[in-house]
Simulated assay, not measured.
Amino acid sequence: MVVLTFVARPLSVVVSSIGSGLSAREKTFLSWAGLRGAVPVVLATIPYAEHVESSRRLFDLVFVLVVVATLLTGPTLPWVAKVLRVARRSEPRGLDVEVAPLERIAADLLQVTISPVSKMHGVEVGELRLPVGASVSMVIRGGRTLVPERRTVLRHGDDLLIVTPRDAREDTERRLREVSAGGRLAQWLHADPGKG
């Protein structure tokens, strides 16, 4: 176990990084960090999926090695990077951008195409009167995207991207069907007077 963690694994990473253009210090750091996490585990699933003899034992061994190696060497990485002078001072950022998965915020993204027969043509975005929390986030028209305002008029052939809370999805879809069938008249029919 010690030989695998501190000799075989670093050596294999150094050999595989030959010709990569990395400096000796960077290769040393990379060999210390080694392959960890998903890579060895995924590789160990290949013989297991092919039903190779003792592959289950191999998979268990690799899994334990990855955990142990991460626990042993993981906490030392900042120190090793500093000693080898491969750590870069992080530059201050004025903005952090992160993709927020809709699953995490319990929302759905609906794509709605306004067909040639839809009475949604000529309706303003604000007249859709979608449920609370639902909004038209983007309109795609003729291959171009635009962020709509309440007074943006919808046209035949438009694709709408609508974000709706998961618990309001059915109400959102029902409201869109009403407007598509009734056009501007649907602004007053079956609408909740508290919305708007």
Rank of each mutant, 00 (worst) to 15 (best):
M1I: 10
V2W: 15
V7N: 12
A8L: 13
A8R: 06
R9G: 15
P10C: 09
V13L: 05
S17F: 14
S23Q: 11
S23T: 15
T28H: 12
S31V: 02
S31F: 02
W32C: 06
R36A: 07
G37T: 05
L43R: 00
L43K: 11
T45Y: 13
P47E: 11
R57I: 04
V62T: 08
F63E: 14
V64F: 11
V67M: 12
V67D: 06
V67F: 15
V68D: 14
G74Q: 06
A81L: 09
K82W: 05
R85N: 13
S90Q: 08
S90V: 02
L95V: 05
A100V: 02
A100R: 08
E103V: 01
A106Y: 12
L109M: 13
S118P: 09
V123W: 00
G126Y: 10
L130F: 07
V132H: 10
G133M: 08
S137F: 06
R141S: 01
G142A: 00
G143Q: 10
L146N: 07
V147F: 13
R155W: 07
L160I: 02
V163K: 04
R166S: 15
D167K: 01
A168T: 05
D171I: 00
T172W: 05
G182K: 10
G182I: 00
Q187M: 02
W188L: 08
L189H: 09
A191S: 15
P193Y: 01
K195Y: 12
K195W: 11
